[in-house]
Structures are given as structure tokens and as C-alpha cells.
Simulated scan of single mutants.
Amino acid sequence: MAEPLLELTDLVTTYRLRAGIGRPGGEVRAVAGVSLTVHAGETVGLVGESGCGKSTVARTIVGLVRPSSGKVLFEGRDLAALPARELRRLRREIQLVFQDPYAALNPRMKVADLIKEAWRIHPGLVPRERWDAEVGALLDRVGLRPEHAGRYPHQFSGGQRQRISIARALAVRPRLIVCDEAVSALDVSVRAQILNLLGELQRDLGVAYLFISHDLGVVRHLCDRVAVMYLGKVVETGSKEDVYRRAAHPYTQALLSAAPSVDDWRGGERGEIVLSGDVPSPLDPPSGCPFRTRCWKVQDRCRDEEPALIGRDTGHPVACHFPDAPATPAADHGRVQKE
């Protein structure tokens, strides 16, 4: 297989918290050893509950947050070890589309200026005499009209603003776009339009996506491979078919059972796994397996030993000591409800 376009190796990103009223100080490992790859022209989905570290992964990849340890490799080059000039050149290869299109665009700048700003930062990418024509072409590509270039962001709907954000990302001709919950703030019909647009752009331009979302239906529609995060770690990863048809980690099984838009992972009776308790605080994560405090399969080994993300007998990597144990939850951890 060809070398990955993007490779994360044991990525750890830590935030320092100041002590406050009712809040202790300390360090939070928002990302606690994530490894994943994205190849040219493919879409990898990163899913999990809010607060599991997905957005921190995105911000670390594009350089908005520095990793505490591990590596972010782009075309085999460690971004943290590059000199400033080379890093600036490479940064245009990786673009980020934010979740909130209302906050992502400067309200004081017209659409044309928002897009041209990228060419001012990266001179020589587009000849200045071609800027206006290129703005019009980009807007047309994302489904807007060239005359929209003279308007301000507040004059557009949420879906149109997200199209502008995508046009701005495309302006520097990236090879990878990180979509951080890029459609979660949009209405369902507009969401479908943006997803179709992303698919068309990939077919036409060959761009790769790291698509971060909590919506399993959207990820299934768009992505080739999927990684599932819990408490800063990837607990299961594989092809779309592996994760959606043969989910082996209890957390993945619980997520899929609660998603009305995907087929039941059991392939037979439809049921729902209801987890009890809350996600542990990353300030004080549990010992051993991070999911053990909510897992119905928990045993003594889970409390003492953290499972590695390896293939086991599942056919794809799973971070669970007992990935094939029967789904018979204990009363104090959860229950399976049959419809």
C-alpha cells in the first residue's frame, strides 16, 4: 500500500487547567495516544461522543494546538520538526473546515476578500490578475454564484456560509481537508447538499478528508474507513463494513444500537444497549480499560490492564480484552432493551 498522506503516531495532546472555585488544577490529556492514517483520495471518519477529543485531534493536525508527544506526519514528514518556511508551505496542503459557519468567517470581510486572503498568505499560488476570476470559479464549484463575492457573511444562510468555508479551504488547493463536525450545525436537507458537494469535490479533485462527526449515519454515507474514539483514545478502527457490520468493541456496539439511521449491528433482532453512568473525567481517567466503568463485560483484567488496539480475532483492530464476549450486560453497567 502507498505511503499514507497523513499519519498520526501515538499522538498525545495535553491542556493545562488553572485551579478555580470548585475546579482543581492539573493537566487534561484530551488526546491520549491516537494513531491513525489517511491515504490520498480517501475519507476517514473519526466518531465518538462529545468531549472524547475529536476536535483536539483536528486542531493538532492543522497546527492550532501543539502535541505533547507523538508525531503528525504528512507525506512522511514530521510537521513538528520542520523549519518555519517549510511548515508554512506544507500548511496549505492541510485545511480545516470548522463546525460553526457563523463563527468561522470574519463578518467584516466580503466573501472575495475571505478567499483572496489565502493567496496573500501564500503568494505565487494564483497570479494576482487571476484572483477575481478564480474567486468566481471557486464559488461556482461550491454551488454559489460569482456575484456573491461582493456580499458579507451575514447575508447568507448557514448552508451557504459553509459552502463559502469550503471554497476558502479549496483556494490553496489542499490535498487533505479536516472537516470538524462540518455539517452538524446545518438543517437535514442542507446537510445532504453539503455531503453531496464534498463527495463531488473528492471525485473531481482527488482531495482526502478526515471527517469528524458524532453522526454515525453521516459517517457511513461518506467515509471509507472509520475510527471510534472514547476518552481520548481510538478503541476500534477498520473499514466501513468492519465497523458497521462487525462491531466488536462494546462502546461501538452501544453507539450503533442507539443510531436510528444505520442497520442493526447484530444483523437480526433490533435492540438497544443502554449504558449507565457518565463518561469519566479526563482529569482522572480510570485505570486499565478507559471504558470499563460503563462496560457490561468488565472483568478483573480490565481494571488492571489497558487493552492494546490490535487485530485479535475480529479481523480489524479493537482495544478490548473480550471483544467477542456475549452482549449480556450486568445490571449495574447497562442493559439491552429489545424492541
Rank of each mutant, 00 (worst) to 15 (best):
Ile273Ser: 03
Glu3Cys: 11
Gly143Ile: 09
Asp263His: 01
Pro317Met: 06
Leu176Ala: 06
Ala80Asn: 08
Leu87Trp: 14
Thr252Phe: 06
Leu198Phe: 05
Ala32Leu: 01
Leu309Asn: 08
Gly26Pro: 09
Val44Phe: 05
Arg173Met: 00
Leu79Cys: 13
Glu129Ile: 00
Val126His: 01
Trp296Asp: 13
Leu87Asp: 10
Lys240Gly: 10
Ile94His: 03
Met1Phe: 11
Glu75Thr: 14
Ser213His: 04
Arg66Glu: 15
Gly150Cys: 05
His316Gly: 03
Val336Lys: 05
Ala331Ser: 13
Glu49His: 08
Gly25Gln: 07
Tyr102Leu: 15
Val207Ala: 00
Leu197Val: 12
Ala327Arg: 15
Arg191Asp: 00
Val178Phe: 04
Ala104Cys: 11
Arg220Cys: 03
Ser281Gln: 13
Phe74Gln: 06
Arg270Leu: 08
Gln99Pro: 09
Gln202Val: 02
Glu129His: 12
Asp332Phe: 12
Ser35Gln: 09
Thr60Ala: 11
Val97Met: 07
Leu275Lys: 08
Lys233Val: 05
Pro250His: 12
Val298Ile: 13
Arg294Phe: 11
Leu170Trp: 00
Asp78Leu: 13
Arg128Asp: 03
Ser189Glu: 05
Glu134Tyr: 09
Arg128Met: 00
Val219Phe: 04
Asp10His: 12
Ala185Gln: 05
Glu200Tyr: 00
Leu205Tyr: 02
Glu306Trp: 05
Lys54Ile: 08
Arg335Trp: 13
Ala330Thr: 15
Ser257Asn: 04
Asp132Thr: 09
Val336Glu: 10
Cys302Lys: 07
Ser261Tyr: 02
Val226Gly: 02
Tyr251Ile: 07
Glu181Met: 10
Gln193Ala: 11
Gly267Phe: 09
Asp332Val: 10
Glu93Gly: 00
Tyr209Asp: 02
Asp100Trp: 06
Val97Glu: 04
Cys302Gly: 05
Asp132Ala: 12
Leu231Gln: 06
Ala327Thr: 13
Pro123Tyr: 11
Thr293Asn: 14
Arg66Gly: 12
Glu147Phe: 08
Gly53Asp: 07
Glu117Asp: 13
Ala331Gln: 14
Thr314Gly: 02
Arg335Gln: 14
Pro107Asp: 03
Gln160Cys: 08
Arg312Val: 06
Val12Ser: 01
Gln162Ser: 09
Ile94Thr: 04
Asp313Pro: 08
Val38Leu: 07
Cys320Gly: 11
Thr252Met: 05
Tyr230Cys: 03
Glu339Phe: 10
Arg108Ala: 13
Arg141Phe: 02
Val34Ala: 07
Arg175Asn: 04
Gly232Glu: 02
Leu195His: 05
Glu134Ile: 01
Leu201Tyr: 07
Tyr209Gly: 02
Thr56Pro: 07
Val190Thr: 11
Gln337Cys: 08
Ile164Asp: 01
Tyr152Thr: 03
Leu222Gln: 01
Leu17Val: 15
Ala182Val: 08
Pro127His: 00
Ala254Val: 06
Ala325Glu: 14
